[in-house]
Amino acid sequence: MNKLKKFIPWIIPVLLIIFWQLSAVVGILDTKVIPSPLQVIQQGIKLTKNGTLPKNIAVSLYRATLGFLLGGSIGFVLGMANALSTLSRNLLDSTIQMIRNIPHLALLPLFIVWFGIGEPAKVYLVALGVMFPIYINTYNGIKNVSPDLIEMGQLYQLSRSKMFKKIIFPGALPSILVGVRYALGVMWTTLIVAETVNAKSGLGYMATDAQNFANTKTLILVVVMYAILGKLSDSIAKFLEEELLSWQVGEVKA
């Protein structure tokens, strides 16, 4: 019975796809407006054969990863600094919160004005989007490390680096990883938008292009690709979480 449990999350998506294909076959669906799953898959095979799909996936992945690393590191460093140093927090936190409240996608035109129409604007926008969840979760994670444990560390005269390595960072890690998973979602949605303007490659460009040519097959294909990539990155992050937080097994959780 346990083996079947694994497949439960897939029931709804699979049923939806079957229903979708059936309605196309039966004729309820106007495949000019919305292609059938089969057509989308065929389009996917076609574009994989001629290299378009792999190339654009690779480019998008590169931009996304770069932006994530950039924004994630900045968010992590700032979160750490503001959690550990009152001076840093007083100096920077308000500014960060103000910027956070600006919907970063709306900044795209501004980013293009500042950074031009090339790669930097896209990567920076992704970085900006990724920065905040990581910042907040790093900050909160560190701030919420059990004060008991910190006091224990002080009483046991642990060096500052040991305090950080053994107590503060591991204690903040669950929160940080939550931030990472959230940030991965933001990474994809930001990239989609960033690639619709002044892009010559990437999944977002493929989507805009498909839109302009009324190529709904490619359009849906790109949407599906985004869903797959999003799920994939989330799964990898979840697995990472399980590995790094394996000590939580056995804890009584709500």
């Binding site: 690779a58 480019v59 998008s60 992945l61 590169y62 931009r63 996304a64 990863t65 990155s233």
Partner: peptide, 11 residues
């Protein structure tokens, strides 16, 4: 993932 991202960079 990493390999694809690097490929993207090269493209």
């Amino acid at each position: 993932w990493v390999a694809t991202a690097v490929a993207g960079f090269l493209v």
